[in-house]
């Protein structure tokens, strides 16, 4: 009887480990590598040179841009520096055109990409993606203090501003197809759509990407996002698929930075503060 209990216990333990590995627990790869004595070459190389080489395309403010001296600055630079510092490493920024960033990573020219790169499910075969650090998707925004709390709370025939042809426009047309009784008011640019919401009482809401919306808030426009992203577009950090230790470190440190309020601080620094609308 005792023998049978031991056998069943062993079977359950093996099954649990198998399920954990199969489910792709966040640090499963690193754990297995440690167990097998395998090492993460990217992480080791970073330790040896005391440097984290990060690829960035400095053409997407406020995440990556060039300052007056030609240095790369922005949200992503500060985020990468915070990560590097927490690991006791220096940060080296390698400016690379956006469409070559992942190729450079694959070729080993850089250790990671921190450049407002959207998560790509297909890319998971080739690259390791971190948890998101910024949700750039389409949000429903309303004037500060508006009683509207989401799409379902929009009044019938509500006029919703969009940038014509944009993702916000696409989401608005999708909502219409799905039965939402809204009318879209198209504008040529995001700024015109934002101004319409702020100044035109006939406009009830706005559908806009979170980057443009957050920039407007930083400029003092009294608009606020309500409800979840209606079209998700999360920005992630990309590392080599084989860099299991580095990826684990990125994930845990990002979580720490989030918990410590550092990500919120970076957002305020680079987008400007959001007014207190006491929702």
């Amino acid at each position: 009887m005792r023998h049978r209990i031991a056998l069943v216990s062993a079977f359950i333990a093996v099954l649990a480990v198998a399920v954990w590995l199969w489910a792709g627990a966040a640090d499963a790869g690193a754990w297995v590598n440690r167990l097998l004595g395998r090492q993460d070459g990217t992480w080791l190389a970073m330790q040896e040179r005391g440097l984290w080489r990060v690829g960035m395309d400095p053409s997407f403010p406020p995440f990556n841009l060039l300052d007056e001296q030609g240095a790369v600055v922005g949200y992503d630079v500060d985020l990468a520096r915070a990560l590097a510092t927490s690991w006791g490493l220096e940060l080296e920024i390698v400016p690379i055109g956006y469409d070559s960033l992942l190729d450079a990573l694959k070729a080993g020219r850089i250790d990671s990409v921190v450049s407002a790169v959207p998560y790509d499910p297909r890319g998971t075969r080739d690259y390791g993606f971190s948890p998101p650090y910024f949700e750039a998707g389409v949000r429903l925004a309303v004037r500060a203090g508006s009683p509207i709390t989401g799409v379902a709370a929009l009044p019938p025939q509500a006029l919703v501003a969009v940038e014509w042809g944009s993702m916000g426009d696409l989401v608005g047309r999708r909502l219409q197809r799905e039965g939402a009784a809204i009318e879209l008011a198209p504008y040529a640019t995001p700024d015109e759509a934002i101004a319409a919401l702020a100044e035109d009482e006939r406009i009830s809401a706005l559908l806009l990407d979170q980057v443009s919306l957050r920039q407007a808030q930083g400029r003092g426009v009294a608009v606020e996002a309500v409800g979840p992203a209606l079209e998700s577009n999360p920005y992630v950090i990309v590392a080599p698929l084989t860099a299991t230790v580095l990826r684990e470190r990125i994930a845990t440190t990002l979580a720490d930075l989030q918990a410590q309020g550092v990500l919120a601080e970076l957002e305020t620094r680079w987008f400007g503060p959001i007014g207190d609308y006491s929702r």
Binding site: D57, S59, F60, Y98, D99, E163, W164, G165, S166, D169, P186, A188, T189
Partner: peptide, 16 residues
Amino acid sequence: NDHPRWTRAVRPGARI
């Protein structure tokens, strides 16, 4: 093309 970051792109409305 109406990519938000590509230097050869235009705004989505202009593309239409």
